[in-house]
Computed example of a mutant assay.
Amino acid sequence: MTFRDTPWPEGTPCWVDLMVADPERADRFYGELFGWETADQGEEYGHYRIALLEGRSVAAFGPKPPGMEQVPSVWTTYLAAADVDKTTARITEAGGQVLMPPGDVGDSGRMAMVVDPAGAAFGLWQAKENVGLQHVNVPGTLVWNECMNRDFDRAKAFYSQVFGYHLGDISNADFSYATLDLDGRPIGGLGGISEGDSHWSTYFGVADTDASVAKIVELGGSVSREPMDSPYGRMAQVADDQGVAFNVISVTG
């Protein structure tokens, strides 16, 4: 179990959120699946909803902004930044692009949206009053984030240059994969893909992967990769009842 009340180290996945067509529907789906309660931030923040587990923030979702209705809904990973403006500058120097320039979110923090050289989008979060995730690594919370990338070698160079990651490369003849390590421990992953778009993926912890997959289907979601065992826990690739992809993996807590 991990509780957090101070800013996350730079480069650590520190937040995930979802802009979706029907936030009320998402509220019901994830509430039933993970036991989340939500706190609506009000009209000033576009009715952005903070998801809470045991009173601590674990994720967020809200309505799509005007003009973005046709953009596919995805769980977006945010990486912690001590200074969003400086990190954004390093991203452009390393070959990435800025989708939304740095800006303040009230007194909560400062954020930007960026994309790596192969097109994988992610956010940056500089904590002020809101440190981001307060509860992780137990059922119902975030446990892992990974970037699946069409240009594995360039992605390794990009993320290392921007965030100072050390790479724990565990690639073999069948797949390309490296852990993104800070201070000697993995905080996320980077994998190579030959098909599809480069993207960041989100893994939520569950107590029982098979039971959770059955619950997802019962709630109107779908399964794209059936439960399978891995050295890190039993996992599955699924989608919610609005077609938004995510992963579940068994953890204790």
Rank of each mutant, 00 (worst) to 15 (best):
F158S: 05
F163C: 06
E146I: 07
E146G: 01
D151C: 09
P139G: 04
R150H: 14
Y165P: 01
F158C: 01
K156N: 07
L167P: 08
V138E: 02
M148V: 15
Q134T: 03
Q161T: 10
D153I: 06
H135I: 00
K156L: 10
D151Q: 09
N137M: 13
Q161G: 07
N137P: 10
Y159W: 12
H135F: 13
H135S: 02
W144M: 02
E146W: 04
N137D: 15
R154G: 15
S160E: 05
M148D: 04
G140D: 02
L133S: 08
D153C: 02
G132R: 00
L142Q: 12
P139W: 06
Y159N: 08
H166A: 15
V131P: 06
L167Q: 15
Q134M: 12
F163Q: 13
G164P: 12
R150P: 08
L142W: 09
A155H: 01
M148T: 12
Q161E: 08
N137V: 07
E146H: 00
V162T: 10
F158H: 02
H166Y: 09
V143G: 10
Q161F: 00
V136H: 10
N137R: 10
M148G: 12
K156I: 06
N137H: 11
N137W: 09
F152G: 09
L142M: 13
Q161C: 05
F163A: 01
D153E: 13
L142T: 08
G140M: 10
N145H: 01
Y159A: 13
S160Y: 04
V162A: 03
H135G: 02
Q134C: 08
D151K: 13
H135Q: 05
N149A: 10
P139A: 12
P139C: 03
N149W: 05
N145K: 09
A155N: 01
V138N: 03
V143D: 04
Q134R: 13
V136G: 04
N137K: 06
R154P: 00
L133F: 14
H166G: 14
N149F: 09
Q161K: 05
L167G: 06
V143I: 15
V136P: 11
R154M: 15
H166C: 12
G164E: 13
V162S: 12
S160K: 11
N130Y: 08
E146F: 03
G140S: 07
L133R: 09
K156Q: 14
G140P: 10
V162F: 08
V143M: 11
R150Q: 14
A157M: 04
K156V: 11
Y165M: 05
V131K: 06
R154V: 14
T141K: 03
C147Q: 04
L133K: 04
G140W: 00
V131Q: 00
A155C: 09
N145Q: 12
T141G: 00
H166Q: 15
C147D: 06
A157R: 11
H166V: 13
P139M: 03
E146Y: 03
Q161L: 03
L167E: 12
G164T: 08
C147M: 11
Q161H: 11
